[in-house]
Every structure is written in C-alpha cells, then in structure tokens.
Amino acid sequence: MNRPDYHFVHSSFKLNGFHLTEDDLCRIAYSFIKEGEPFERAVGDFLLDWFDKNDYIVMQTSGTTGEPKPIRVEKQAMVNSALATGAFFDLDPGIKVLHCLPTQYVAGKMMLVRAFILGWELDLAEPTSYPLRRADAVYDFSAMVPLQAQHSLDKLHKVKKLILGGAKVSSALAAQLQQIPTEIYETYGMTETITHIAAKRVGEEAFTVLPNINVSEDERHCLVIDAYTLCNEPVVTNDVVKVISDNQFIWLGRYDNVINSGGVKLFPEQIEEKLSAYIDRRFFVKGVPDEELGEKLVLVVEGDAYDIPASVFKKLGKFEKPKEIVFVEKFAETNSGKVIREKSMAVA
C-alpha cells in the first residue's frame, strides 16, 4: 500500500466540525495566528510549518536530562508515526477525537498530523489541567498527560480510548484509572522517536512496540530503538529496561538516575512509585555523595518542611529507605513541566 505524503488531507478529516482541505487549513492558520487564543496561535504556527515547502519540522527536545536542543524531524516520518498509531490502537477514519495537548510540543503536533492522515473529526480544546471541564460530546480517542487525567477522573468515561504520555503514570493514579470503563494506555516515547513507539494498558508491566519497530538492550541494559520508518539510525536511550522480546520490554528507570549505594543499585523511579500513594506533593529521590556508601539515598520534597511519619516508608526495601529528607521551595522544571532533578537539588 502506498503511504500518503505529508500534503495529504484525508477526505473524512474535520476540524471543530468543519471539513477542511489543505488550502482551508492554511487560511485557518492565518486566522488563528491573527485572532486566536494562545493555544490556537500555536496550532496556526504548526499548520503553516506543516504545509510549507520544507520536508521537515524543527522541534525542541524536552530538556529533561540535558539542555533542550533543536532537531530536524522529517514530515514523512511523522506521517509514518501517525499510521503506526492508527494501526496499533485501531483508530479508523471518522472517529471523534479531542485534542487537548499544547501544539508547541511533539505530542500536540502529532495529534494534528494523525487527524489529517487518518481522517479524524478533531475538536480543539485549550490544553489546561482540566481538559474535559467543558466537554459535552463523547470522544472515541484522546491523548493527555497524567495530570490532566488525574483532574478528569469524574469525566474520563466520556473518552472511549485514551493514551497518556509525557510523564510516568503513578501506581496511585493507575489504580484509580483501572476503575474507569475507558480503555487507557500508558505510552513510551520521546521527541527523537516522534512521540510514542510503545504502549501498555494501565496496570500492566510490559510495553508492546508499535508496528515496524524493534527493541534491544545495549551493554548498559539501556533500551535501543530500531525504528526505520521514523529514524535514519537506531536511537540509543538512557532508559534501563528488561527486554522480553524484540517487541516487548519492561521499563526500570533512567540510567543517569541510578544510585549505587554501598554496592547496591537503586532505581529512583521504582522507589518513587512505592512512595507515590503516601506523599501528596511533588518529590523525587536522588543519590548524593557519601564517604561511607559512595552515594546515599535522599528524598527531596517540594514545599515547606513538615514531619513525614516513618509509616510512609513501610513498603520500601532495606536499602531503599532515604538516609535524609530535603525540602526545596520550588523545583526547577522544563518548559513542558518536567522536574529537572539536578537543578532542583542545586537550590536545596
């Protein structure tokens, strides 16, 4: 089957209830930029970039583990990503979809690309923490960050199929989401792989990759992604994983976050998941230099100091319990709201 190119706009595509062609979208883009709300201006900017003469888009990486940097992403690779998402999640032309992510970032851009290519009826909503507050319709599909899902628990039944990305779904949130009839998936991906390349049902352990993607481990046990329809060469990540097969893996944590405390390797993300049900503020755990242990485990909590009872740590293993608790008034974060651990510790 011939793959559509990036100028293709499916005949079933609608934006806010209106059938639109490429020319229509360019006119709408100018209108959004001139008269729209800030989130609509971002949509307008992307539409003009998408339909210009270039065969690529320039995007910024997230900056979670280093300085954000611009990268070129081929538009055809974005089309290929959209097709893979449609096949994996069984998303047919004509479905009604809510777009409530900021279009400045890759996930928001890809919701638009999927709609053009797959023929969705797309409604734009302001990308707030409460995306379903004014939603009257029932949607077949949407994409959110976990915080949006957390603030929409009473209305998520209005979305039949939902994908979550941008941050890990905590065990506490996962337990709440499993009580909702919506089909909900946690995704794995990054700007370099043009949003998600794998997904799992919330509550499951292993991610399954999308079509035309294979995964393996390097010598550090970090994930290597071979996605020939998306990237010209394999993407070597800093995510420590357990690869089950060439299309399934279990995510363990970030290689650059691993703590070696007295010869024991500790994965902060696993410890944080155990604590997430007991600490109602933003927090993370991190290793800091220690003469005896090499690194000691420290719990870093955002906000004013308060007494944290010992019972909070009851589910942690012997080596997982923090040796110290540090309070930081305000965490450093990326433009997309992800906590930058190193910079946050620098102001402690």
Rank of each mutant, 00 (worst) to 15 (best):
N2I: 12
P4Y: 08
Y6M: 04
L15F: 07
L20F: 13
R27C: 13
F32N: 02
P38V: 09
L48I: 05
D49C: 15
W50A: 02
N54I: 12
D55R: 10
Y56M: 08
G66F: 04
G66T: 03
K69D: 02
I71Q: 09
E74Q: 12
Q76L: 09
S81E: 10
A84G: 13
A84E: 15
A84V: 09
D90K: 12
P93N: 11
I95E: 10
L98R: 10
P102K: 01
A107H: 03
M110Y: 00
M111A: 09
M111V: 10
L112T: 11
L112M: 15
G119F: 07
G119Q: 03
G119E: 05
W120G: 00
E121S: 13
L122Y: 05
D123H: 09
T128I: 07
Y130F: 15
S142G: 04
A143M: 13
A149C: 00
H157R: 13
K158P: 11
V159I: 10
I163S: 08
G165Y: 05
S171W: 09
A172V: 15
A174G: 04
A174T: 06
L177N: 02
Y185K: 06
E186I: 03
E186L: 08
T187G: 00
E192L: 00
E192C: 06
A198K: 06
K200N: 10
R201C: 13
R201K: 13
G203P: 10
A206Y: 09
L210M: 12
I213Y: 01
I213M: 00
D218S: 02
V224M: 00
D226M: 11
N232D: 12
V236C: 08
N238S: 14
V240L: 07
K242A: 13
I244W: 02
S245M: 03
N247R: 12
N247A: 00
I250L: 13
D256W: 01
I259F: 03
I259V: 00
S261Y: 06
K265A: 09
P268V: 04
I271Q: 06
E272R: 00
K274M: 11
S276K: 03
A277P: 00
A277Q: 09
D280H: 13
F283S: 04
V285R: 01
K286M: 14
E291G: 00
E295Y: 05
V300R: 04
E302P: 07
I308M: 01
I308F: 05
I308P: 07
S311W: 04
K318M: 14
I325A: 09
F327G: 02
F327V: 06
F331P: 01
T334Y: 03
S344I: 08
M345A: 11
